[in-house]
């Protein structure tokens, strides 16, 4: 019988939610908990869960080395044929914990491991190339589906069977390329694919294009002399003293500042909060980062319609893409509401 050790968090062990996320690792030999029941059913008589290890998500991530070494010692003692972590769905800390411990079990104990999580879980990007990671839905509603893919993969790993391509054995592509002979040659496959495409039939590409997540350009500004232009910057320009305490790195918020009547940014009035570049030049003259002086003159000369009376600023230094996106979504709505026609966005 194949021996399995299963890792889950405090939530799936039904100990508690966020309020119990601080609990240290626990070992429950001979017990099957949470999704373990579904794994047990899927294994039939081929494998058994000999122990369930539970750890609070916050504990694991805040006491990484401690949690890892405790759990590794247990797994070493239990000596299973395969280690299963999760599935973690879209729970970020849980996904990172699953990936971390599964990777450690493989690397340090030589025991194969499998985990599962939603593709956008940060743990997926961190560990999918190291640990077989089954893509799951983003919530526990997808548990049945996740187990139906993780269980056979775990059994294969335990039996040291050859693992097929990611699309055959249901894991996220892990960057491994394997040479093999196709039955049909490339030209034939390409024509077959083209015929299917022309007939509007489903086909599977052999080389998916990377996801660039592009946004199409907006139409050009028709008459700039009537346009209201706003300034946005990731260069961290703020009124002297940084009144909203925008962080020098990994900014958690952006600032909105009124520049009504301001024709020039000076050393006495503005500075940068950015901690990722030499601030001397920006502190001397913040127009070097956001060109308020030039745009004011252009406004006076009628070259542009108006310089918007507010500018939006944050520090683009190690700031999470998700944060920047959220900032932009929020202030763009304000810009639209204020009738802004175009934005000049400067970066350092």
């Amino acid at each position: 019988m194949i021996k399995v050790v299963h890792y889950i968090n405090q939530f799936f062990a039904q100990i508690g939610g966020e309020e119990m996320a601080h609990i240290p690792a626990e070992r429950h030999d001979g017990e099957v908990k949470g999704p373990g029941a579904a794994f047990k059913a899927a294994f039939k008589d081929e494998a058994e869960i000999i122990s369930t290890i539970v750890c609070g998500d916050s504990y694991f991530n805040e006491h990484l080395e401690e949690a890892k070494s405790t759990i590794l010692a247990w797994v070493k003692e239990l000596n299973p044929d395969v280690f299963i972590a999760g599935p973690a769905f879209n729970a970020g800390r849980y996904g990172v914990a699953c990936g971390t411990i599964a990777d450690a079990v493989q690397e340090e104990l030589g025991i194969p491991a499998v985990t599962g999580m939603y593709v956008e879980n940060p743990g997926a990007d961190m560990f999918k190339n190291k640990v077989y990671t089954v893509p799951t839905k983003n919530s526990a509603a997808g548990a049945r589906d996740a187990v139906s893919k993780m269980a056979p993969l775990a059994l294969k790993l335990a039996k040291k069977e050859a693992i097929g391509a990611s699309c055959q054995d249901n894991y996220m592509p892990n960057g491994t390329r394997v040479n093999f002979f196709e039955e049909k040659r490339g030209s034939r496959r390409a024509v077959d694919m083209l015929l299917k495409k022309l007939a509007d039939k489903p086909f599977v590409t052999e080389y998916p294009m990377p996801d660039f997540d592009r946004v199409a350009p907006n139409p050009a500004v028709k008459d700039i002399s009537k346009a209201t232009i706003a300034i946005v910057t990731s260069g961290g320009i703020v009124p002297k003293g940084n009144p909203d305490h925008i962080e020098s790195s990994n900014a958690s918020h952006y600032g909105e500042y009124d520049i009504t009547g301001v024709t020039d940014l000076t050393e006495a009035t503005y500075e940068t909060a950015h901690g990722g570049y030499d601030p001397v030049y920006a502190n001397e003259d913040s127009d070097r980062v956001i060109p308020v002086d030039v745009l004011r003159d252009m406004e006076k000369e009628g070259i542009i319609g108006k310089l918007h009376n507010k500018f939006y600023t944050t520090v683009g230094n190690g700031t999470a893409v998700a944060s920047s996106k959220a900032f932009a979504e929020e202030f763009s709505q304000k810009l639209l509401a204020d009738g802004v026609d175009a934005v000049i966005l400067t970066s350092t």
Binding site: V215, A216, A220, A328, L335, L336, V343, L345
Partner: peptide, 14 residues
């Protein structure tokens, strides 16, 4: 942020 502004429908120059 550039993409966020563009996605809101405002032409933006970076």
């Amino acid at each position: 942020m550039v993409k966020g502004v563009e996605a809101a429908g405002i032409p933006v120059v970076h």
